[in-house]
Simulated assay, not measured.
Amino acid sequence: MSRAKSTLEQWRILQSVVDFGGYAQAAEQLNKSQSSLNHAVAKLQSQLGIQLLEVKGRKAYLTEQGEVLLRRSRHLTQTVDELEQLASNLGEGWEPNLTIAREIIYPMDFLVDALKAFLPHSRGTRVTIIDSVISGTHELILNSTADIAICAIPAKGHIAEPICESELFLVCSPDHPLALQKVIADDQVLAQYLQLVIKDTAINKASDTGWLKAEQRWTVSNFHEAINILKTGIGFCWAPAYLVKNDIASCELKRLELKGSKSRKIQLSLLIPNRDKQGPASKLLESLILLQHDINQSLD
């Protein structure tokens, strides 16, 4: 293995000389002698066999070759800085990866805003979001696959913080026969038509969400697929209000009124599957999600 001719310190000194406009200015900023900086750059040029800087008057200017190498050196020193920061983070227990289980009826905008606030402080933590349904969410919690879970029904044995309600509307296409009825008298009327339901995401259990009395059912993996099918005039579905309100306003979907049940509201909660092993990144993100719902909680 060949040894490098140059050092990171030499490249950092070169960057400083250029960034601060000369050897004297860089020496003052770095708290080093000007002669030591001159020596470091001169040695770097000698080792590489190429001129990087030329001095005109009292200012140092990059040569064409120096500009190319300086750009590449910035990538190199940044990568090393990030590597050292990662090592420091890991030493402090900062998690390199976080997994969030999100019940699909939880509005994504809340989570995006929390992650946006988390990003400047994330220290490079990679975040994975898993959209889940009912027992699929429980499975992620019980298997400790998720670091943070947002669930409709808290898993047994776990403490959860209620954060918001998700409202579900009964919807279909304006061209569907159900759309002609001002008020649907009872469940038996719905039972005559095809219902779109969302498949449970659990590996070891296959159930579906919502009212399931319709004789005909199509099961899809998410509400976006269900909505696209609804717009073709096929079926009805209980869907989150935040996903269908614009389609209702534009008359692409029709909101149905079921006697005794204009909508359904489901309580959503935030849950930490393993509080004892929760790290600082998870604590920070948890607090930011709670703040989206105006909940302040001490996580020390």
Rank of each mutant, 00 (worst) to 15 (best):
K5L: 12
E9Y: 01
Q10I: 03
L14M: 00
V17H: 08
V18F: 03
V18T: 04
D19T: 10
D19N: 10
D19R: 07
Y23N: 02
Y23G: 06
Q25G: 03
A26D: 06
N31S: 14
S33C: 00
Q34A: 13
Q34W: 01
S36F: 08
S36L: 06
N38K: 02
H39N: 13
H39R: 07
H39I: 07
A40M: 05
L44G: 06
L48N: 02
I50G: 00
I50E: 10
Q51F: 02
K56E: 14
G57N: 10
A60F: 01
Y61M: 07
Q65F: 01
G66H: 07
E67F: 07
L69S: 01
S73G: 11
L76Q: 14
T77A: 01
Q78S: 14
V80A: 12
E82Q: 12
L83N: 04
S88Q: 14
S88E: 15
N89H: 04
L90K: 03
G93H: 09
G93S: 01
G93W: 05
W94C: 10
P96G: 03
T99Y: 02
I104P: 13
M108S: 15
M108A: 15
D109W: 09
V112W: 08
A114V: 09
K116M: 11
V127H: 07
T128K: 10
I129A: 06
V133K: 03
S135C: 12
S135L: 04
G136C: 08
G136S: 10
H138Y: 12
I141S: 10
L142I: 09
I153H: 01
I153Q: 11
P154K: 00
P154A: 00
I159H: 11
I159F: 07
A160G: 05
A160C: 05
C164G: 00
E165Y: 11
V171H: 02
D175Y: 09
P177D: 05
P177V: 05
Q181Y: 12
V183R: 00
V189I: 10
L190M: 08
A191Y: 08
L194T: 04
I198S: 01
D200R: 03
I203F: 15
I203A: 15
A206C: 13
D208L: 12
W211A: 01
Q216N: 14
S221E: 15
S221N: 15
N222Y: 11
F223E: 07
F223P: 09
F223I: 03
A226T: 11
L230H: 04
G233C: 13
G233P: 14
F236K: 09
F236S: 08
A239M: 06
Y242K: 01
V244D: 10
K245Y: 09
I248V: 14
A249N: 12
S250M: 04
L256M: 10
E257R: 07
L258H: 04
R264A: 13
L268S: 01
L268H: 01
S269K: 03
I272D: 05
N274W: 11
K277R: 11
G279M: 03
P280G: 01
S282Q: 04
S282E: 09
K283P: 09
L285S: 07
E286K: 12
E286Q: 13
S287R: 06
H293A: 05
D294T: 01
N296E: 05
S298I: 06
S298T: 11
L299S: 02
